[in-house]
Design a protein around this nucleic acid. Structure first.
Lengths: 191, 191
DNA sequence: GTCTATACGGCGATAGAC
DNA sequence: GTCTATCGCCGTATAGAC
């Protein structure tokens, strides 16, 4: 039936996006070919173009998927009682990824850097990866009573996490992110 | 004469490396083709291979050039009287690049991220871009009397600068790096 | 050492049958 | 909607004359 057709289509599209997100993280967006993608998602190569007109469209889908991942995370964080607890939990979740970050970089940061160097339309979309998390952080710092300094504190926290992720990947040492994470958590607690 | 030939050869090699360093920063290493390079350095395409066997060799030369740039900077910094003054001057030099960083990213950080995602032999060389600066920072913090915490303080400083550089590039806003730079300078002064 | 012409492979994208 | 075959381009690298 038509319904099955559409269901299959949704299934394929989802598989393609999932594969794209994972491959872009593991081996980079640029390095990931449509053939790689088709194979990983178990979709014939030519069929990819039924779902995405260009490779850039796939990049856009990856960015949107990462954005929605943060929304899910945020829904969980917002269940915590205090702004401090929420911020600490955010840092904690990043730290728990240290092993993956050491291998492939921060899922958001390394993608952002790559899209920026690619320099196409996607470069201008790259900050979407940071916009929502930083808005959220800023609200937490405001709620903590630092309304005036919230933007600075947010920049400080996000920069430290992103920089530490890059160091962690470059030196292939998860301990770096863990050390910075511990420091940032006690910094938040002491605010 | 033979001497002129060698002089011309050195001149060409230097032009090629300079062009490679600049193009890799402006448009990315991967995106820079050998044709781009040949044109920028005013060297015929086929002749590039007389100086570099593969494109990876050019990448290696770029990394080494960046390393030697730090050595020159360090020679200048080490002329300053105190460790604090040296560390502050280091942050200052990064801050003064904010406009360029907003356009093309940190010359070291963005290259490092790119080489890491490329995943070849060069990925393993990427941390050479950070090793010497971080060794130097660690010695400064030790000289300041923080021998035990020097590694942590170094990680903190380098992470903040790298992360802030990524934010600055992503949001195309030099003010971000300037804000973090100011904060880091007063943090150093207060140590 | 220098340079032109070209081989070779890979990738994004399309055509067109089913 | 699905899939095969293939086009056209571009990028690295090489061959070989000078």
């Amino acid at each position: 039936m038509a319904k099955d057709g559409k269901a299959a289509a949704r299934g394929k599209q989802e598989r393609l996006v999932s594969a794209a997100v994972e491959l872009a993280h593991r081996q980079g967006y640029r390095k990931t070919t449509l053939a790689d993608l088709a194979e990983a998602a178990q979709v014939p190569l030519g069929n990819v173009y039924y779902y995405f007109k260009t490779k850039d469209d796939i990049g856009e889908a990856i960015v949107q998927h990462r954005e929605s991942e943060f929304e899910a995370m945020r829904a969980h964080l917002d269940g915590l009682p205090t702004p401090k607890a929420r911020l600490v939990a955010f840092v904690d979740m990043t730290m728990r990824n240290a092993a993956t970050v050491a291998k492939h970089g921060c899922p958001m940061g390394s993608l952002c850097a790559e899209l920026l160097k690619d320099g196409g339309q996607l470069a201008e979309r790259s900050n979407a990866l940071f916009a929502k998390p930083m808005d959220w952080m800023e609200r937490q710092f405001s709620a903590l009573g630092y309304a005036d300094a919230a933007a600075d504190l947010t920049l400080q926290l996000q920069s430290s996490l992103q920089g530490a992720s890059l160091m962690t990947q470059s030196f292939r040492d998860p301990a770096l992110l863990e050390r910075e994470g511990r420091r940032l958590k006690s910094w938040i607690e002491a605010l």
